[in-house]
Amino acid sequence: MAQLTYREAVAAAIAQEMERDETVAFIGEDVAKAGGVFKATVGLFDKFGPKRVIDTPISEQAILGAAMGAAMTGMRPIAEIMFSDFLAVCWDFVANEMSKSRYMSDGQLKCPLVVRTGNGGGSRFGAQHSQSIENWAMAIPGIKVVAPSTPADVKGLLAASIRDNDPVIFFEHKSLYAIKGEVPDGEHVDTLGTAKVVREGKDATIIALALMVPRAVAAADKLMQEHGIDVEVVDLRTLVPLDMKTISKSVSKTGRLFTVEENPRLCGWGAEIVSIVVDELFWDLDGPAVRITTPHIPLPAADNLEDIAIPSVDRIYNKILDVLK
C-alpha cells in the first residue's frame, strides 16, 4: 500500500481511468498546466497531454454543457468546477439538463460524466468560497452524489464515478486535500452507494460525511475515554445512492442517531436520513434523533467565527454528551 495525500489520490484516480479508457478526458479552469488551484491534478497534463487534459476559459456553463454533450455522444468526461459555490452559475446543467436527459428521452440519452468540485469550509475564504452544498445536489433526481473522507476512498470512489453511467457530482473537501492515508496499490475501484462503519460502538450512531468524519471519530474517541460512551461512526461516502442498509443496521444496534453535517441546517442531508429512520426504524430508537449542523447562516470569513459555525470535535462531543446524559 502506498501513502498518498487526498489530493494525490484525485490525480491517481484520474490517471488510472485515463490509462484504461481513452474516452476519459478532463477539462476545467487552471487544471492542466498549473495542475489545479488545489494542486489536485498535478502531473496529468504532462502525462496525457493537451488533447485530454484541457485548460478552459472561465465559462462554467460551457464546461458543464460541453461535458454533457460529449458524454451523450460517447465520452466519459470529467469536468472540474473549482469551488462548489461556483456550481450555482451553471446549475442549469445539473438541475435541468444532465439530471433529466435520460428520463426525458426514456433512456435514449445518457450522461456518464463526473463533476469534481472543491467543497466545504475551514479555509477562511468567506461566504462564496466555503459552502458545503452536497445537499443541493442530493435534492435533484437523476444525479449521484459522492463525498469521500480519505485518500483511499477518493481514489476508489472517483474511479467508480468515472465508470458510472450516470452523472456524478464528486465533492472533494478542501480542508482534507492535505491529509495522508494508505491507498491500495494497483487498480482500485470502489462501489458507489456503500457507507462504511469506520468506528464500531454500541451506545449511539453518528452518521457523518467528508470533513465531519474525522471530527466525529475524534469526538467518539473522547466520549469513550472520558465517559465510557461507545459511539459507532458511519462514513456515508455517498449521499445518492444512499446506503440505508448500513445506516439502519447501526441505528438498530445502538438505538440512538446523530448526524454531523457541514451543510447549513435547513434541508441538510441529515434531515432525510432522520426522516427515513423515524419512518422505518421508529421502534428501534431509544431517544430523539439529533442533527448537529452548521447553523442556517452564510459562512463568515473570520477564523474565530468560522470555527464556531462548522461542527467541531468539541461541539459534537458536548452535544452527544448532553443528549445521552
Partner: peptide
C-alpha cells in the same frame, strides 16, 4: 464588515463601494 466578509468582499456603501464579489461575472 467586522470580519464577516473578509478580503474578497470589501464593502463600504458610505463611500459608494457596493461590494466586492467572488463569483466571476456576478
Amino acid at each position: 464588515m467586522r470580519g464577516k466578509g473578509g478580503s474578497m468582499h470589501l464593502t463600504d456603501t458610505s463611500k459608494g463601494v457596493m461590494g466586492s464579489y467572488a463569483i466571476i461575472g456576478a
